[in-house]
Design a protein around this nucleic acid. Sequence first.
DNA 1: TATTGTTATACTCTATAACTATA
DNA 2: TATAGTTATAGAGTATAACAATA
Lengths: 168, 168
Amino acid sequence: MAEQTQFEELARQLSAVGAVKRDMGRILPPDCPAGSAAVLTLLGRHGDMRMSKLAELLAVDMSVTSRHVAHVAARGWIERHPDPADKRSRILRLTPAGLEQLDELSRRTTHLLAERLADWTDDEVAQLIRLMTRLRESFGDCRSTAFRLPVPVTAPVVEETTRTPAST
Amino acid sequence: MAEQTQFEELARQLSAVGAVKRDMGRILPPDCPAGSAAVLTLLGRHGDMRMSKLAELLAVDMSVTSRHVAHVAARGWIERHPDPADKRSRILRLTPAGLEQLDELSRRTTHLLAERLADWTDDEVAQLIRLMTRLRESFGDCRSTAFRLPVPVTAPVVEETTRTPAST
DNA sequence: TATTGTTATACTCTATAACTATA
DNA sequence: TATAGTTATAGAGTATAACAATA
C-alpha cells in the first residue's frame, strides 16, 4: 500500500496526461478523431464483434459507442452486418478501406511516438505499458461504485464576468 | 528506441486511460469538475501565480485556463489580485475556502486510489508516477510540431441515420 | 507593435433518458 | 419483462479567433 502523497501525485499525473493525449490527437487524419481511431484500432486487434462488446472494450456507454461507430461506418471504414443469432444485434467488421485507414493511423502514431520517445529504452516503454495496463485493470472491476460525499464549503456563487482588478 | 508494436500498444493504453480519469472524475465534489480541481491543485502545489503560468502548468490554452479560473473564482476558492508589476496581469491565490476544497479533493482522490490500488506496492506506484512524469516531459518540448499528412482514402461520406440491417 | 487576459463560437467526448425492435 | 442498439439532449473540455487593456 502506498502513501497519501503518492496518491496525490498519481492523481496529478493522471490529470496531466491529457496534454499527451491531445498532442497525439493533433496528428490524426481528417475525419478521424480519437473516438473513431479507437473503434478502428479495437476492431483491428480483436476482430469482428458486436456493439456491446466494443462498448465494453472502449469502456464507454453504448450510446457513445453507437455514435463513434456511426461515424466510421458513414466513411466506409466498417460495415454493420446483421447477427443471424440475434436480430437485435449487429456485427461490426473492418472494410478494406478501414484497414487502410488503420495502417495510416499506425504510421502516424508510431512516427510521433518514435520522435517524442527517441531517448526511451525498449524496457522503459514496456514498463510504462505494463503499469498502465495494470492501472486500468485495477479500475476496471467496480465501475458502478460511484459515491458522493457532502460538500465541505457552502459559499455563494458569484459569476464574475467582467474584470475588476482594483476592486475592494 | 522501442519497436513499432510497442508504440501501437502505448498509444492504445494512452487512449484507454481516459476510463480511469472518468472514474476519478465521478467522485469529485459538486460544482468542482476536473478542470477546477486541477486549478486548485496546481495553486496549492506551486503557490500564487499568474494566468499565463497556470496555463503553462495545465498545458492548455489560456482561454481554457481563463474559463476554469472564472469558475473557481466565482465559488470563492481563489482570488484574482492585480499584479503591481504589470497591470495586464492577475495574480491568482487560494482562499481559505479554496484550501478547504483542496483538502476535500485530496481526501476523495486518496480514498479512491487507496481502494483501487490496494494491491499495489509503494514501489509500483512510484514507478508509474516516474514514467508518466517522464512521458509528459518527453512530449512537453515541441508542442507546436503539428503536421498533417494527406488523407489516404477518399471515400464518400454517407451518414446512415436509420438502421438498415438487411439492405443490399 | 507585442503581450495578457477575456469572450464568443465551434467541435469532440461523454452520460442519461426516452425510444424502437427483438428476445 | 428484459436486452441490443439508436437518438436527443445536456454538460464538460478544448482550440481558434476576435477583442480590450496595457507594455
